[in-house]
Design a binder for these strands. Sequence first.
DNA 1: GTCTATACAGCGATAGAC
DNA 2: GTCTATCGCTGTATAGAC
Lengths: 195, 195
Amino acid sequence: MRDKEQTYKQIIETAFSMFSEKGFDQTSMANIAAEVGITKPAVYYYFKSKDDLIKGLFDIIAKEIQSITSIDLKEMNDTDLRTILYSLGKKAISLQKQNLQFNQLFNQYLLLAARDSYYSEKITEIQQKFFNTFYDLFKHAVKMKAIKDENILIKSQLLGLVFDNITNFILTDTKLDFDLVWREAVDNTLRGIEL
Amino acid sequence: MRDKEQTYKQIIETAFSMFSEKGFDQTSMANIAAEVGITKPAVYYYFKSKDDLIKGLFDIIAKEIQSITSIDLKEMNDTDLRTILYSLGKKAISLQKQNLQFNQLFNQYLLLAARDSYYSEKITEIQQKFFNTFYDLFKHAVKMKAIKDENILIKSQLLGLVFDNITNFILTDTKLDFDLVWREAVDNTLRGIEL
DNA sequence: GTCTATACAGCGATAGAC
DNA sequence: GTCTATCGCTGTATAGAC
């Protein structure tokens, strides 16, 4: 006999991989059910509609995204800003290369956001937090007298944009040396404001 | 009586605006036909399938994208690299704000690229050309003795990434001062290599 | 060259048995 | 909790009239 929690989890996991690979519209509730090994109505027992399943999955991955991009400011005490930024990028790049599905799926939600405020509001919030992470890091460095308090809002936003688009381009076939570009971005940003 | 060229053009234009607003899957051939004022089979007379229409539209906007991001190197003689880069960004930002549909549609093709090599190959080519535009600009500036020949490949790629993601974020509700961020990116990049 | 009419597959979703 | 069966609808696509 099948366990309820287990089935729920299996549906979510199957939806994640099928949605990310084939897209929302090319994945039917029947497809998901078949992959899990149950029938369509059984899926409807757990999710009252397809939209409900898509939203449920979003809430899960939205949480994961936040934890990936969050930085523990306590680390800052040990080491300098440049080193932290370097390793932040390195970590994100290798993580992203392993886990292409994740961004593939998230990009679909970005498209939905243009037509559904449920997604646009939450995604805006995620992006704002993401930029704040960089800003906080710079503010903290100022407080620690590691850098000058010069244009750090714009500088942190700039690094955020680079960081974000590096992870986007990893999905494509465009050949770029992401590690080098990230280091260049960090170096260019810090040049002139270091103490 | 309806003109053949005219009808074809109307279908393309209608497909462009409906696909960008509602998405490929939420726009049926019947929807497009109704909007144009003809019937569904009439659309099939011009495009043998929906995929065919989607591909046809892609080929058209792919050309437009190339012309937007291309720079005439002859301009370089009159003015300096910094000014060119500033105005390049300014132009793209205001263009993008007026023309949100365009990127909205292109992002859908980016998703298709993950599952269809027809798109991934052409998009990779577009992206490569895009980065080359920046690289050529830097190489030209080196030749004109405007900047040092120092890391210019990576620097041009970095600016390309910023440029591209600025146009992406214009689509979202995230509040960023794009003009300022772009100027900061240009300034950071040129600092230290100017002659 | 453009239409009407229609075939046919697949979708999301529900009723009701077990 | 999961099933069979089925509904209603919409989608792509085509045959054939005009």
